[in-house]
Amino acid sequence: MTNEGVRYFKNIREAILTTAKGMKITLKYWVKEPAITIEYPDRLGKGRTAEDLVSERYRGFLKLDPSKCIGCLQCMRACPIDCILIKVEKIGEERYLTRFDVDQSKCMYCGLCVEVCPTGAITFSKRFEGACYDIGELCIKHLQEPVSVARPKAKKKEE
């Protein structure tokens, strides 16, 4: 047999051997329990929701605490893609928040609005399941009716 022929069969032998080594590893994981992947969202366990899977700092949908918002519009300015729309109007003597819309379909969850908020009114929730049939549903209107803006410093003075 020529040199070429010997190398040909040697190559086949090595290919089979090294593939068998890889198969051994695959087999090891095949018999291993428990499985690494879990089915979503059926096998979360009792009483657990998908929101329990994510960590404390998870950046999900934005949520608003209207009683804390002072209407400074800093979050609106910090947003790189303008997905927050706030309107502050003066009705009589007091200033009212009349509109606070967050378009979650545009939002890129960067967290700049949460960082600049001086009172912690706008924060992240852990909600991340945003699938819906109409994209308009993702434009979340946080205020149903006008709310007077919070004045934390004024309250302190009264006390």
């Binding site: 404390e56 700092r57 998870y58 950046r59 969850y109």
Partner: peptide, 27 residues
């Protein structure tokens, strides 16, 4: 991904570093 999620809250687009520092301390 889990490590980064615990650190900064996102799994893919981390946006962790800021001009002048970082956004979160270690968890």
């Amino acid at each position: 991904n889990d490590l980064m999620e615990a650190l900064c809250g996102a799994r893919l687009t981390h946006n962790y570093v800021r001009i002048g520092g970082v956004s979160h301390d270690e968890p």
